[in-house]
Design a protein around this nucleic acid. Sequence first.
DNA 1: GAAGATTGATGAATCAATCTTT
DNA 2: AAAGATTGATTCATCAATCTTC
Lengths: 170, 170
Amino acid sequence: VGELSFDPIAEAGRHWRRHWGRSAVPAMMAVTSVMRAQQLLLARLNDALEPHGLTFARYEALMLLFFSRRGSLPLGKMGVRLQVHPTSVTNLIDGLEKRGYVTRSPHPNDRRATLATITDAGRATAEQATTALNEIRFGMGSLKAGELDTLTGVVRRLRIDAGDFPDPDG
Amino acid sequence: VGELSFDPIAEAGRHWRRHWGRSAVPAMMAVTSVMRAQQLLLARLNDALEPHGLTFARYEALMLLFFSRRGSLPLGKMGVRLQVHPTSVTNLIDGLEKRGYVTRSPHPNDRRATLATITDAGRATAEQATTALNEIRFGMGSLKAGELDTLTGVVRRLRIDAGDFPDPDG
DNA sequence: GAAGATTGATGAATCAATCTTT
DNA sequence: AAAGATTGATTCATCAATCTTC
């Protein structure tokens, strides 16, 4: 992937305005920005996590168990929390189990369900990986806390709007 | 993917603060927000584009040709503009070509290079797909123009910071 | 019948290796 | 040797279908 000598998003905005007027421009630029930001951030996070045998998706699943009360959760519950499909949970847990960060066990009360439990090695890796992410400021570069909160706030509006979770002020 | 009864990002923020103090919390929440926003937006955009035989990635490639001066670009140049790897450009153009939106032709001056050219059908689809995206406000829901610009602005800082393009205020 | 999880198949994205042209 | 593009292999995510248990 080569170097760019101008802002491609601003450039696209100019083209857009010329062809379709100004009304759609802010939304189009915002979407493109989010897509590009995600691409940049994911690459940085995965680079930092790779030495620990993790991808960002696996890291999120591991942290969910790390913070859970008993260190274990049913796979279905993890899917809802992470907002991914059941198949993805199976794959994520497969990856974590293969590396010894998690074990599978049958659910004591519901024999349909499977429980994922974080191991000691998983806890140690979770701590180390978090340190690694902190060292790169989660990929957010030189952005100040205020800017980060702004970002989180705007996206929160978007998520409520999508029915991601009920509006607490609603 | 089921329903959630609280904000999982805010919840994660509380756990984080308890274990690692407050310094990392804003960055962690911002990253998670961007990831979730991208997931939501991409799903909406792809739903709207699917009737037109497009994914968002293919849409971006098609619009790049749509706005290009001659309606054609070398594949390498497209990769730099879209910030994707050469293999991805090959795959994207394969998809667009299969649907008759683009044709391949040899570069007149450089026999190593391939030129992608948008067809009339491609131009018509580009217009229709853009109308479809406008109708859903590019997936940005009820966000106001000011909020969209805020989002674009913060991400712009992040992108400059990543060396995505040179800082114009340098 | 519905919930929970897994398997096998498909689509998208990157990587390494290859081939041609410069 | 380096640039431009493609092929084949790997990874990841989702989808449809299946199997067990509720």
